[in-house]
Design a protein around this nucleic acid. Structure first.
Lengths: 167, 167
DNA sequence: ACAAAGTTTCATTTTTTTTTGAAAGTTTAA
DNA sequence: TTAAACTTTCAAAAAAAAATGAAACTTTGT
């Protein structure tokens, strides 16, 4: 297998994975590309390698920076901006979970709390609704807290978790 | 807040969450509906409550059953089929992680192994590629194993995890 | 102050995903 | 064996999401 081929395979696969997880293909591909680049890459080069438009590149780079997993870099004597990805995988995982928690879990918790505290009459139907949504609220809250605690270790959280679980 | 209103809010929210996680809206909504129903629901009623076509209902119920989180039920004297959701949240989480691991993590691991074992020449670029994809492979493999181990507890895995983590 | 080099924005187009609905298929009871 | 009751399939339509590209904007060097 040639380098280009391997790189392309990786980028494509990461892109496909992204779309299965609600992250758009290009965003995941840019991230993949930057992850395996040993030096910062310009927007031009990204457009070129992924065959995408300037607008697309710009918007997805912005999104990746909002997630805190891609950084802008400046090179001396160069006017252009260059981009690098967070390459530390522990750090990457921490940032992704923080962001997803903030954007998705927290709003769901809010709604779950609301609907689970609705005043049921004593029909089995309404009681079951309150019961089930309450359980769901507790579950999601607990899961969110665990995630928080785990990623608080920050360095080597996964390794530390392995140790805890296995023993 | 009225019952109908609370229920609808929950179903809509669950649907929205689903689409952010790569699960289609209707599939998540049907699941939500079944989760909070105290008894099995017919396809007719699902179509009716969610205002969707028969085809849509049928296909998404099939998908939910493939995931192992929705079951078919028969009522005596009734020709129709009825559906229920897995309501035990531990069990639900276990099934979802198993399925996602099988469908998404495993294929990615395969590709990561492939590309990370490509024979790099000694340019910094190619070396970095191999290094980074190898790290990624190890990380994803470890994470997948942890998930496996965790969900092996099966009953109350989340509670048990909380205990392990906190102490 | 200007223009060159670069980036961002957003209305429009394209692509992808989801939904529909009607036809084909299946099961059951008489 | 037939027909009613019900479910599945899948080509086509609709909806949603992503990508384009050109104009607007910003920054920098002279």
């Amino acid at each position: 297998m040639e380098f280009k081929e391997a790189k392309n395979k990786f980028v494509q696969t990461w892109g496909a994975l992204g779309s299965q997880w609600g992250i758009n293909k290009t965003m995941a591909q840019i991230h993949a590309l930057l992850m395996v680049s040993n030096e910062a890459v310009s927007m031009e080069d990204i457009m070129d390698e992924l065959q995408i438009s300037r607008g697309n590149a710009s918007m997805n780079l912005r999104a990746l920076m909002d997630w805190g997993i891609v950084y802008k870099e400046y090179k001396v004597g160069e006017r252009k901006e260059f981009f690098t990805a967070e390459k530390d995988l522990d750090e990457l995982a921490v940032k992704i979970s923080r962001e997803r928690s903030k954007r998705e879990i927290k709003p769901v918790l809010k709604i779950l709390k609301e609907v689970s505290t609705f005043e049921a009459n004593n029909s089995a139907e309404e009681k079951h609704f309150v019961d089930q949504t309450t359980k769901l609220y507790d579950f999601v809250l607990k899961a969110d807290n665990v995630l928080d605690k785990i990623t608080e270790y920050k360095d080597n959280w996964l390794t530390k978790l392995v140790v805890k679980i296995m023993k």
